[in-house]
Nucleic acid binder design. Structure first.
Length: 205
DNA sequence: CCTGTATATTCAACTCCTAA
DNA sequence: TTAGGAGTTGAATATACAGG
């Protein structure tokens, strides 16, 4: 670390400081701070003329500089993790809702990608549609429908079995391979969530 | 009153997701 | 990367109620 010694009048003081604070002057933040000409001047002045005012000026300059560094570091970390989270979320959505395959194949060929794919899971079984009743089929109130739609898949499944099929907690537990207590709790939680949603809807009016 | 059944509650442990 | 919140679970226990 070489200081600006054009002042010349306190070379000894600066040399002494350098010797006494070797480790301190190797610190990256300190080095970075002193790279700025104004900071270096403040630093040299504070050593050559160590009045309270000069030290205060140096302190304030360092505080500002340090805040700036921390702020940039925070923003940079936040951007990084947001990017990671966004990527994770995006991949997940893509996994859950595969991209449309309706795009034309191009290359002068007729048809789309879906014409080339046979996916058993994508087959629509009319029996399933007819048999699989949902509680939503029985609800007319849009707010209530929206509240039910907000529930987790587990909660919706249990609500359906309990209120559409009229099964007991124990029976539902057997079907879903869960304990009766677990079913009871999830059902109750679902109802609480519905009430909460409805209350929220009312408040927002 | 006792017993059996259904349901509710409490607690600790766990996973998953989100925000920082 | 990590802390914290929400959701879920099973075990243990409590409560309600019908029937003998």
């Amino acid at each position: 670390m070489e200081f600006n010694m054009t002042e010349g009048y306190c070379t000894d003081a600066l040399q002494k400081f350098k010797l006494d604070n070797e480790e301190f002057l190797k610190n990256n933040i300190v080095l970075s701070f002193l790279k700025n000409k104004d900071h270096e001047d403040l630093f040299v002045t504070a050593i050559c003329n160590p009045t309270i005012e000069n030290e205060k000026k140096l302190d304030n300059a360092f505080r500002k500089f340090y805040f700036h560094i921390r702020f940039i570091s925070f923003i940079s970390t936040a951007i990084y993790f947001n990017a990671v989270n966004f990527d994770k979320k995006h991949r997940k959505i893509q996994q859950r809702h595969p991209l449309t395959v309706d795009r034309p194949l191009g290359n002068d060929e007729d048809g789309t990608f879906k014409d080339l794919i046979t996916d058993e899971k994508a087959q629509i079984h009319i029996d399933h549609i007819i048999q699989k009743e949902s509680i939503l089929d029985y609800l007319e109130d849009p707010q209530l429908c929206s509240a039910v739609e907000k529930l987790t898949e587990k909660q919706k499944e249990i609500i359906n079995l309990a209120f559409v099929n009229g099964l007991s907690d124990t029976q539902i537990g057997k079907i879903l391979n869960k304990s009766q207590q677990s079913v009871s709790k999830t059902r109750k939680k679902a109802i609480q969530n519905i009430i909460q949603s409805l209350k929220g809807g009312e408040n927002s009016k």
